[in-house]
């Protein structure tokens, strides 16, 4: 599969602080990759390096096989970017800024597409940018990005200021560009969004990629929540290796089950009369929290 974004062991330090330590991941053509991690983990730094705004200290980062720093201008012609905090010229109107962004790309503006997006995002382009809320400023960047015919879309927490309805519009638009064959890198805090949209995720923590792969693969790494009710009381479950955080509530046993020990668990409960067995699939959030908590714990 054609690799559109390829990051290979990039490093970046700001003074003594090491912001990125051998970060590597890739985005294939037609794929949407979620890029998640707690605040200050290095998501935006990675994106800024990808955009050629700052230079990496080591490693290599390429977009379309071109070096992101040396061939920045060429690359920018094919990339659309929406930052988390959109900064606009306060005395220009939203419509003017959208036109400006598009004209900077040097391509012809697809007016119909632009108008359609303005309608879909329910955006008023006649007001001056200083009067816009965070969400509206975000819409300016989103409309400009989706109006452009780009091959790669990079979103850095694009829906942070949007209401749930607009979030859905964003997700639909993202799927549309994917259908057209574009690739998307989505950095986000909203894990449900990443879960719904992304084929693969990369989790970054303290400047290092700690987990990377398809959501299906990653789920194996985590645990399912099992709610179990049996006729008999099972005391021995507490001492089983596959069960974690065992609690009892109104005769029900709730615990976390290692996904790769499902078989052991089934064999374990065979002798008992099972009245209720519920299994909740692992959420991305659990996966994320596992890493997040370990960060907090200083591991």
């Amino acid at each position: 599969m054609e690799k559109v974004i390829e990051i290979n062991a990039i490093e970046k330090s700001f003074g003594k602080t090491k912001a990125l330590n051998k970060v590597s991941f890739e985005v294939n053509k037609g794929e949407i990759v979620g890029f998640i991690g707690p605040n200050g983990a290095g998501k935006s730094t990675t994106i800024r390096i990808l955009l050629g705004l700052i230079k990496a200290d080591g490693g290599s980062a390429t977009l379309f096989g071109k070096d992101v720093w040396k061939d920045a201008v060429d690359i920018h012609k094919r990339v659309a970017y929406v930052p988390g905090d959109v900064n606009l010229w306060p005395n220009l109107t939203g419509g003017q800024v959208i036109d400006l962004f598009l004209s900077m790309r040097g391509a012809k503006v697809d007016k119909e597409r632009k108008e359609e997006l303005i309608k879909r995002f329910e955006f008023d382009p006649t007001k001056k940018c200083r009067a816009y809320s965070k969400g509206n400023r975000q819409k300016v960047a989103l409309i400009a990005a989706f109006s452009a015919e780009a091959d790669v879309y990079i979103f850095d927490e694009p829906t942070a200021g949007l209401d749930p309805l607009q979030e859905r519009v964003f997700q639909r638009c993202a799927r549309e560009v994917l259908d057209k064959g574009a690739s998307v890198l989505l950095s986000s805090h909203i894990l449900s969004e990443v879960e719904q949209l992304c084929d693969r995720v990369a989790i970054i923590r303290q400047g290092e990629i700690v987990e990377s792969g398809s959501l299906v693969d990653l789920r194996h790494l985590t645990r399912s929540q099992i709610t179990l009710k049996t006729k008999e009381d099972i005391h021995t479950i507490d001492s089983q290796d596959f069960a974690h955080d065992v609690t009892r509530d109104k005769g029900e046993i709730v615990f976390q089950l290692d996904s790769d020990h499902l078989d052991d668990f089934l064999r374990f409960i065979q002798p008992y009369t099972v009245l209720k067995l519920e299994s909740a699939p692992p959420k991305l959030e659990d996966l994320f929290m596992r890493h997040y908590e370990s960060t907090k714990g200083g591991v």
Binding site: V73, H76, W89, F101
Partner: peptide, 14 residues
């Protein structure tokens, strides 16, 4: 300071 400069840098303009 406001960040709009980065918008310009991140355009296909040298």
């Amino acid at each position: 300071q406001t960040g709009t400069w980065n918008r310009l840098i991140f355009s296909p303009l040298t």
